[in-house]
Design a protein around this nucleic acid. Sequence first.
RNA 1: GCGGGCGUAGCUCAGUGGUAGAGCGCAACGUUGCCAACGUUGAUGUCGUGGGUUCAAGUCCCAUCGCCCGCUCCA
Length: 538
Amino acid sequence: MDGQDRMERIVSLAKRRGFIFPSSEIYGGINGFWDYGPLGVELKRNIKDAWWHDTVRCPPPGPDGKPIEMVGLDCSIIMNPKVWEASGHLAGFTDPRIDCKQCKARFREDQLLRPFLKVLTSLPESGQMFDAMNLVTSDPPQTIPVLVDQPNREELQSVVRQFLNSKRAKVIERPQAPPVMGSAFFVVDGQKVFFLGLDLAGTVQAGELCPLCRGELTEARDFSLMLATNIGAMQDSASTAYLRPETAQGIFANYRNVLDTSRLKIPFGIAQIGKAFRNEINPRNYTFRSREFEQMEIEFFCHPSDADTWYEYWRDSRFQWYVQHGLKSDKLRLRNHEEDELAHYAASCADIEYEFPFGTSELEGIANRTDFDLKQHQEASDRDLTYFDDETKERYIPHVIEPSGGVDRAALAFLCEAYDEDEAPDDKGVMRKRTVLRFHPRFAPIKVAVFPLVRKDGMPEKARAIYARVRASLASFYDEKGAVGRRYRRQDEAGTPFCITVDGQTLEDRTVTVRDRDSLAQERIAADEVLDYVRGRL
RNA sequence: GCGGGCGUAGCUCAGUGGUAGAGCGCAACGUUGCCAACGUUGAUGUCGUGGGUUCAAGUCCCAUCGCCCGCUCCA
């Protein structure tokens, strides 16, 4: 079963069992939006509740072994647009773009471009990274005319492919801010560096020809990754507001309020779970890249000199959180960003990545954002966002460590990790395929299902009584229809860890069986102890 | 955003111009004492949507929306 096949089975199961539906499906759906069904909403809620408990209410002890201070927050999705000016999102999200109608290259209106291929003869050692922007803007290295004067897109790509296939090249992934689409660069044998890309050589305007292929260009078009809306009845530019593209800025905007009302001392963290929106160009990979998604974020404020310690603390403890909840396979990875792929606001950054069936992608990023955000907001708002330490009499802007995870991505990862097919015997002892979701019990949408073995001899009555008791404190499900084996299998597909069955013996000695989802083993316990038993194993 | 593929029942899919189907699933009843049992019965489709061609369109054409793959992008 390859990745695509596995993913299709997971998507199919998720739809069939009510985990995830396409949004507004009866109208043909809408690209980049998804709904969570009855089982999906329980899964997601369990993830969020676990996160909230494990980071806000009862976080792990700090690096010094002492308890750490955390509080929660729930900000509005729409904020004063000045927030996004200060954070840099507005500028970064709204560069007008010009597309080439022929070769489909995309340019920024006010920048750019001439294709080139450069060979640097005295450069870094094999594997060493370097800054693409510096390469472009520093003294022009030797340029060799490997390509024709006006290479088209296919030619550019084919040259890149040749290098990649030659295995002489080490590709540096995710170069920082390549000037435009289509650029790539790599190191060859520690001897020469090739940079293939587009030069910053003037501007392109609508009406001109494409510098790549001499094709026709489109008009400049706004290309915003923030979803906009209008406040009030009048729709003009003054009424434009944005759906937040991340929850973090709401925390920074409230940093002063929280500090003034909570008697917190540095270091402390503010956590928030909430929806965020990005107008992704190309939503893909099921729910992984959606236009509407939910984040669970912490902004942890600390003294600048402690930032590295807290960064490592959060990076490692967040990684462990995923491990503890079932992503313990080798599919989970911690990837530290190299210096040249760091965002402008981050001093260091690590991604917690998971190997989904469609590829390895980020679940959560942990960044040392330094004092960038608070400084930006202090300047833009003209409010004092410094912190005064009464003990040391020191005044400073705290540095911020940000663990920022995607709830939907976590849900998808746990779903993918949980999906399994194994074999179990049918009533005649023949091995049959079984589909089972091996969720961590904490995340299982249904914790316990209660069945009568058959629908007679008063078993349903006993079973319903037990169900009434357990549902008061655990997500539970009652089923008496059809054969018990079928009911077990249905719960396997939902990921229910425990099935309680009332049988003939129950009527004699008030015991029931507890069937384990993963081992299929059954244990007989007193009916009155069912609740404690299940709780003890969650 | 570009290119390719695909949209038919809840799921997986068959159906190349002439009465919309199969398997599984789902529901009801009966049977059934531990892992997708059996029997009987039943429900579910504007064939993604809109337009066109045709006596006749699930089928051919156009557009559009959605999904998948590749490219691109991911501040």
